[in-house]
Nucleic acid binder design. Structure first.
Lengths: 109, 109
DNA sequence: TCCTTTCGTTAGTAATTGCTTACGTTAGCA
DNA sequence: TGCTAACGTAAGCAATTACTAACGAAAGGA
């Protein structure tokens, strides 16, 4: 059914850990639908460029974003594939074969 | 559209942090579809009861599970409501108004 | 070749984490 | 009342985290 392979437990460690930092979620939102250079990303925040670079490394190692080089610049973008893998992982944590529609239906009474 | 209110940034910190620990994900899977007592949960793992108790506290404070007292026992169960809130939060991080079906369709080519 | 731009890496620090052992607390029973 | 079962809480420790300042590296002109 799903095109992407399921994330391993170790992948889940890395993904959820990466997502647990508000700064990293902000970065991810910034590159959610377009490529952005490391410097442009860093300019958006009140921490050093170094800190942002380290956050980018964490996100990249978690498979949450892709990197492309263009001269001295490095362009980052969120990986859509990982998003749906995370959706599937959440469903797997809660219960085996839940479909999301049913859960939403339960909540609305 | 959604019945549950969106999770705050702080809630997301707590949720993703709680989920970033493999032991806590295991605990959550254990109580995914039924109430289980703290002692029963602890018996499943090779760490002390104390460690499990602390994990339960982290999960509870993240809103990921509910607690019910029965005599001296405390029964825990995963909160389904939070699952769909997390699904929504993931979509919000990646891009504004994505529907999950479309993403899955993209992946299957 | 020299200089600048754009970036990652290293070293170091205060704060947090997952774990342990030891100690309370509450409910129920004899 | 005393005892036990089933818990949470506190103190402490080695390892990790998010950050800063300082340094290194590579690409592209003048």
């Amino acid at each position: 059914m799903s095109a992407a392979p399921a994330l391993s437990e170790e992948d889940l460690d890395l993904c959820f850990h990466a997502l647990s930092q508000p700064r990293r979620r902000s970065i991810l939102r910034l590159v959610g639908d377009r490529e952005v250079a490391a410097g442009e990303i860093a300019a958006e925040f009140d921490v050093t460029r170094t800190a942002v670079s380290q956050h980018l490394t964490v996100l990249k190692e978690a498979g949450l974003l892709s990197e492309r080089r263009d001269g001295t610049r490095r362009l980052y973008r969120a990986r859509r594939e990982t998003l749906s893998q995370l959706h599937a992982a959440l469903d797997a944590v809660w219960g085996s074969a839940l479909d999301r529609g049913r859960i939403l239906a339960e909540e609305t009474r």
